[in-house]
Design a protein around this nucleic acid. Structure first.
Length: 432
RNA sequence: GGCAUGUUACCCAAGUGGCCAAAGGGAUCUGACUGUAAAUCAGACUGCUUCGCAUUCGGGGGUUCGAAUCCCUCACAUGCCA
């Protein structure tokens, strides 16, 4: 375990930031690479990335963008963090189906949450201080007529139809609404507005947003006669083909109330050997030689999982802070340690359990009920099924009977550890 | 606006009057093996007061002893025509 969190800095062994972000595999597509390299090596530029409030929190996919913003800021450039108050009301077209529109009050509330999260990853001090912007500020006052005359005229429908996001939907039987079809115009407008107000010349985003990114560069080219840039980051994938950023089928959120720091730490700790080096490059500020050393460690002693430990420590610390990470590690050590729970002291055990999903219960509560209460399973049918399959443990002892109650299975301090499968745990505090 | 076709569980997708809680694949979960990996193998995967019962196949209504399957209607989608 590292003694201290990695300092946020770019690796000085790279000649310039472009070389570094390329090495970190952060660039999947971009506008002219040579020009971008030169631009980023030169005097500070203003750049931006947008986050749409389609949920109350950002998730791991957004973290890639946040870290790219931060790396560019560390290279001296000036970030704009855009939270899409207006684009969030529309929603970008997903490949499969139309989105459900969220109401304005909800979106407004989420805008606030996301702004808070974005702020944590950027510096708001110094010559290249970050700024937060909200596209509702310039789209809300716009009338439909102004929109069509001033902005719409620059957009060719043929071009819009060719965007992957749109054509995928047109070719599916879901079709696409005019609302979502218009999304690319809104995002293009954002870039133009930021170019005019802040001299913003670069937009970053996921490669799945490439059509929307170029929508902006094209618009600026037409409206202002200027060439600006875009960088599309790769879609992060797991080598086994499953989706990155899902734990137990749920998204991993940055909000500790939605994904606990313990669960967050565990998510990273469980990274596959074959993915861990790529994760280190993208999600940590470790230097090239440090990552190379960890790569060797994975190859020579994979069972030690050194790289995973460093990755989990660094990313959890980055997102949740040092204290939360220490607590998550302590809980992990207690719960996954060699010894029996009975050998742990009361305070350590209780603290560990509080890192997990935990509930209060009486001694005569059934295990089935507790599995449901702790959200280890989603229904009592599933709880019985899990018990029947031998996948439920109380204090590391398999539960065989689906009528069983917590009863005597109580540890020091009147607590019990409920486990489903190998590593999904919950704490039970016996009261009354 | 007209004609045609389609809408099945998390996703894809069979099923076209009873043998359908509904094939198959993916995802997911559990077990074995392990390093709290991966791969592989096995099992599970609507809910419940679980050897039984209840509710599901876009919404509503109808025919029938009986419907995911037939009819009507509404909504949505796709294609062609206007």
């Amino acid at each position: 375990m590292p003694a201290a969190e990695t300092i946020q800095q770019n690796d000085p062994s790279f000649p310039d930031i472009w070389e570094e972000i390329t090495w970190r595999e952060l660039v999947h597509v971009s506008t002219n690479a040579d020009e971008l390299k030169t631009l980023l090596a030169g005097p500070p530029i203003t750049y931006y990335c947008g986050f749409d409030p389609t949920a109350p929190s950002l998730h791991l996919g957004n973290l890639v963008q946040l870290l790219l913003l931060r790396r560019l800021q560390l290279a001296g450039h000036k970030p704009l963090g855009l939270v899409g108050g207006s684009t969030g009301l529309i929603g970008d077209p997903r490949p499969t189906a139309e989105r459900t529109l969220n109401d304005e009050a909800t979106v407004t509330e989420w805008v606030g949450y996301l702004q808070g999260q974005v702020s944590k990853f950027l510096s708001f001090e110094g010559d290249n201080a970050a700024r937060l912007v909200n596209n509702l500020d310039w789209t809300a006052p716009l009338s439909a007529i102004d929109f069509l005359r001033d902005v719409g005229r620059y957009f060719r429908v043929g071009t819009m139809l060719k965007k992957d996001a749109v054509s995928a939907r047109l070719n599916s039987d879901a079709g696409i609404s005019y609302t979502e079809f218009s999304y690319q115009i809104l995002q293009g407008m954002d870039f133009l507005e930021l170019y005019r107000s802040y001299d913003c010349v670069l937009q970053t985003g996921g490669s799945d947003q490439w059509g929307n990114l170029t929508s902006g560069t094209d618009l600026i080219h037409k409206a202002e006669g200027v060439s600006v840039h875009a960088i599309g980051t790769p879609l992060i994938t797991n080598s086994d083909g499953t989706k990155f950023g899902k734990s137990e089928g749920n998204a991993v959120w940055l909000d500790p109330a939605m994904t606990s720091p313990y669960a967050f730490y565990q998510f990273w700790l469980n990274t596959d050997d074959s993915d861990v080096v790529r994760r280190l490059k993208i999600f940590t500020f470790l230097a090239r030689d440090q990552i190379a050393a960890l790569e060797t460690a994975v190859a020579e002693a994979p069972f030690r999982r050194e790289a995973q430990k460093v990755l989990a420590f660094d990313v959890t610390t980055l997102v949740h802070g040092r204290d939360a990470t220490e607590a998550a590690i302590a809980a992990s050590a207690a719960l996954f340690g060699q010894g029996e729970f009975g050998s742990l002291d009361e305070a350590t055990l209780a603290a560990a359990l509080r890192e997990l999903a935990h509930v209060d219960a009486t001694a005569d509560t059934t295990i089935v009920q507790l599995l449901v209460d702790t959200a280890l399973v989603s229904s009592s049918s599933e709880a019985r099924r899990a018990i029947a399959q031998g996948g439920v443990y109380l204090n590391n002892i398999a539960v065989a009977d689906d009528q069983a109650v917590v009863g005597g299975g109580v540890l020091q301090g009147n607590v019990a550890v409920l486990r489903r499968g190998k590593k999904t745990l919950a704490g039970i505090f016996i009261v009354g």
